[in-house]
């Protein structure tokens, strides 16, 4: 079949390093994936096209990118499925919420730092048993659903909170934290939940479901985050600024489709918690530098009806 890939290019070494789109017309087999197409480009047409990929079978997690505006793996997206209805090119952009290094290659360092931050290793107490730990297979099967995460970052790319608040640990790191919290062999549940209760942790998710939708491995990060919240509540981690932060966050987006960052810290910490609010100043400055200055007059964005519908739908589901 014939298809056109419209790829967002960026080369920091060029004399005029500006992002732009470049189109490649390809003739590929009907079963070809978007990754097959991109590899064909880089091997036969344009050797400068740069992307990460390795396994070609959705297991190494290298090839997450935005395909027609939504994050996914290039290697398990068929070209025939990605051609927009009515024809036209398939638009391919680097994963979102991460800095672009070159073409489709983004900087994963913050992603890995957050994974590191949840102390993602088993922390058992007491002496190791002689042979294996005895653990129910059901618990292991349940955990396998999260272990299936390939750290591709598709969820992080499209997470609506990370788009505005880079402090959020994000869906992938939190899913990883969940696996350790539920592991019957791990004895650090209390300290793990206490940490996840803090700013940037489980309460910052707005339950937008993007991560569930884009995850190629069925990990359902949002569901894991909700389960962590339940566990945190069970341990009495309620009424913290974390919980309020989430509600404020959701309110704001539901109300106007925007995240009202100016109002958010106030709602979260209470109007008189001046030191805490001041503590957030660097976030504001960083947002400003990134061109993400919160709009002072909080207006609704055009699609707000749709966003409200999503919220209603979700609330009716719970």
């Amino acid at each position: 079949m014939k298809a056109t890939l419209r790829v967002r290019r960026f080369d920091p070494d060029s004399d005029t390093p500006e992002a732009h789109f470049q189109e490649y017309d390809l003739d590929v087999e009907d079963s070809a994936t978007v990754l097959d197409g991109l590899i064909k480009v880089r091997e036969e047409v344009d050797g400068t096209l740069t992307l990460r990929c390795s396994c070609r079978s959705a297991i190494c997690g290298s090839c997450a990118m935005r395909i027609n505006g939504q994050a996914g793996l290039a290697c398990n997206t068929k070209i025939s499925d990605a051609v927009p209805r009515g024809g036209g090119p398939i638009t391919i952009e680097p994963a979102g919420n991460m800095q672009i290094i070159k073409d489709l290659v983004v900087d994963f360092q913050p992603f890995w730092d957050k994974v590191r931050a949840v102390e993602p290793w088993l922390q058992p107490e007491g002496p190791e048993p002689e042979t294996e730990y005895v653990a129910p297979n059901d618990a292991m099967l349940h955990e396998a659903g999260v272990m299936a995460c390939i750290m591709c970052g598709a969820c992080v790319s499209d997470c609506t909170v990370l788009a505005v608040d880079s402090n959020f640990l994000g869906p992938a790191a939190l899913a990883k934290a969940y696996r350790l919290v539920v592991d019957p062999r791990d004895d650090a549940e209390a300290s793990r939940l206490a940490r996840l209760d803090e700013y940037g942790g489980v309460w910052d998710c707005t339950r937008c479901m993007e991560c569930v939708e884009v995850c190629p491995k069925g990990v359902a990060p949002m569901d894991r985050i909700m389960a962590l919240r339940d566990k945190a509540m069970e341990r009495g981690h309620t009424g913290t600024y974390g919980a309020r932060h989430a509600d404020a966050f959701a309110d704001s987006i539901k109300h106007s489709g925007w995240l009202d960052e100016l109002k958010l810290p106030i709602k979260t910490f209470g109007l008189f918690n001046i030191p805490k609010i001041l503590g957030l100043v660097p976030v504001g400055i960083r947002a400003q530098l990134a061109g993400k200055r919160p709009p002072i007059f909080h207006k609704s964005i055009p699609g707000v009806q749709g966003i409200r519908r999503i919220f209603d739908r979700m609330e009716s589901r719970r």
């Binding site: 290793w121 088993l122 653990a135 297979n137 292991m140 955990e143 592991d183």
Partner: peptide, 8 residues
């Protein structure tokens, strides 16, 4: 012991 879940 390091944390691999293994089927049981």
């Amino acid at each position: 012991h390091m944390g691999v879940i293994f089927s049981r």
